[in-house]
Design a protein around this nucleic acid. Sequence first.
DNA 1: AATGAATGAGGCTTCATTCAT
DNA 2: TATGAATGAAGCCTCATTCAT
Lengths: 207, 207, 207, 207
Amino acid sequence: MSKSRVQPLKQPSQQRSKLTVQAILEAAIHVFDEFGYAAGTTSRIASRAGVSIGSLYQYFPNKDSILTALAEQHMAEVLALSVRLLETLRTSTQALEPVLHDIVGHMIALHENNPGLHKLLYEEGLLPAQLRQTAKQAEQFLIEEVGRCLSLRPDVAAVADRQLQAYFVVHAIEHFTHRLVIDRAPMEFQLRGKAELVSMLQRYLRA
Amino acid sequence: MSKSRVQPLKQPSQQRSKLTVQAILEAAIHVFDEFGYAAGTTSRIASRAGVSIGSLYQYFPNKDSILTALAEQHMAEVLALSVRLLETLRTSTQALEPVLHDIVGHMIALHENNPGLHKLLYEEGLLPAQLRQTAKQAEQFLIEEVGRCLSLRPDVAAVADRQLQAYFVVHAIEHFTHRLVIDRAPMEFQLRGKAELVSMLQRYLRA
Amino acid sequence: MSKSRVQPLKQPSQQRSKLTVQAILEAAIHVFDEFGYAAGTTSRIASRAGVSIGSLYQYFPNKDSILTALAEQHMAEVLALSVRLLETLRTSTQALEPVLHDIVGHMIALHENNPGLHKLLYEEGLLPAQLRQTAKQAEQFLIEEVGRCLSLRPDVAAVADRQLQAYFVVHAIEHFTHRLVIDRAPMEFQLRGKAELVSMLQRYLRA
Amino acid sequence: MSKSRVQPLKQPSQQRSKLTVQAILEAAIHVFDEFGYAAGTTSRIASRAGVSIGSLYQYFPNKDSILTALAEQHMAEVLALSVRLLETLRTSTQALEPVLHDIVGHMIALHENNPGLHKLLYEEGLLPAQLRQTAKQAEQFLIEEVGRCLSLRPDVAAVADRQLQAYFVVHAIEHFTHRLVIDRAPMEFQLRGKAELVSMLQRYLRA
DNA sequence: AATGAATGAGGCTTCATTCAT
DNA sequence: TATGAATGAAGCCTCATTCAT
């Protein structure tokens, strides 16, 4: 509202910058996914992005910062999804199982592409301390929220330490979601695995 | 005659070699644990081992082979422990919970030291294809054995796909074991986590 | 508009690249000539070229490829010269001796600089198999052409095996050419040697 | 004379030393022949000789000295052979051709084994300056002797510079001898080549 | 801003040589 | 004297990053 649309004339540079940054991140996703972090060289990323190495360094101060940006992007997605799913969990009147199925399904969908990258992001100790800190805080927030939701549902057993339970739920979902995706198991196994994960969670949680 | 035979006169050279190899592996454990694989340089390993870089390469053809040796060593330990634990699982007449407690406890103990290294070993795609193959076979064997044991126990629910169940059990133990150790949570949390893991497994499995 | 077009506006980058490559090859010639292949290290070449080691590897994938480039360059020169000389041999109506003198003179001139390098190129088994193959084929072609030329001249004796004769001619020229240059004999000796080589060839060939 | 032969009792060590040295040189011949100088490592030589690397360095101060010893050995053989052949050349009343045939045949025979080694010895600039000096002197001596012999034969043309002629004879024999042997040409070609070499020399020399 | 050539620290590895046993 | 483990200088090469154009 504040900015009038009178001058569409200028800002091509900012526009272009964004495109370039996007192209680089896009390229980085594929390169890291395919080659891993160490072998995913900056020049590979630049050339895949169709951009010169110099331009890459115009937008990212160093290699780490590219991974960091990717991680932040992914964290945002996960958080956004989580918020939506929590909402479902909170408001849904369905039985536990279909809700869990929905959650797991969405989580798998989110990690289905570029599993190699997600492996990097979650498993290798590459992220800078600060971001790791942030991630932990987000996780902590998520765990707390999940804990609250679980407490609200009558079909979930009462437990002494709700936080701990939520911790296990969150990590079980995270881990097996990755596993199923990363192991590149045949689709048939992935489907059965998904069902079994839901089953495990359900048995773990049910009243 | 001059030299007393109290210490059996073993070939000093072989003795010394073994010590050197041990020192290198020992150092590699710590260096990889602390710096990760990429930043765990061979010269760091050598110098931490108190050995020249030349000696390192006298016993290991390249950097990879050091990690491989560590992996093989660890796999052997895991396998040996697994065999013992399976035996317990099979023969024990105890309730499920204490048996699971025992298993989880031993597994945590095995990974308690040098969690960073175990992360490398399990998570990063660094191991040579052949070893990864071997590891997968060992895991498959373990899963099958676990499946068999579960089938034998009357206190474990009958399920349609025992293999899948065993897969989840094995991986849940593996993952949370690492998690608890890697997160370097306070001991108090680790203890509660251990109990909760057992609880989760028990609920998942119980008839 | 502001910039005059006196100097055609060629891409400065490509220009610069070419200069760098030239500088590296130039330096390599001198370094290999002076130190031989083993002691002619890449960093010596780079520093003599006034270029960083990184630049060297930007244009040559490895040390071998530098020598290979030099060899290809030299082969091209030799071939070009040979073609010209063959033409002379074919068309000249002069007596054999002055023609031979001309040939030998040109060959010596071609090898006069950097004899150490030519030694490497011809004598040590350093060239990659493929290039050696090519060189052999070029030599074979040359021998055949020389054979044909010899057959055409009435002042050359008829012989049973023209190819073999040509083989000896080519190698005698090649060898003594190198010899005279490599032995770094005093100029006076080189001149007499040149004459004697011609004399030997003439006696060998004359009808 | 000075040392009485009364005590054959001691010197087993000297005896053994000689054997060891011989074994090392023998091994070095094969290793250099097969791998060349750079890749013919001292430990390869030692192990092929069935001797520890330490022992090798007991008898040879460094790697170069092994090659030097080999070169000296070969030079001695060449010289001894040359002396015998010169004698023949001097005293023989045969025609030039059979004498040359004999000479070339013997020279080829001397280089037939381990051509790779001879390539090293003659072609690569590996020999220490001092030895190269010695070799040159020996060659000079040989050339002079050959020159003298040629002068004595009535079937050899009188020439202005006998030394130069001898230089060409000696080097032509040396070079083509190596070529025929090193190129590992098929035996059939080697035979024809040998005949052609003799032919070339004969035409070069004949009155 | 964009380009890509240039940089050089630093990693892995080899191998001649030394030295403790 | 023999052994072979240990040494470490030095070579090749990579790749994140800088900088001239």
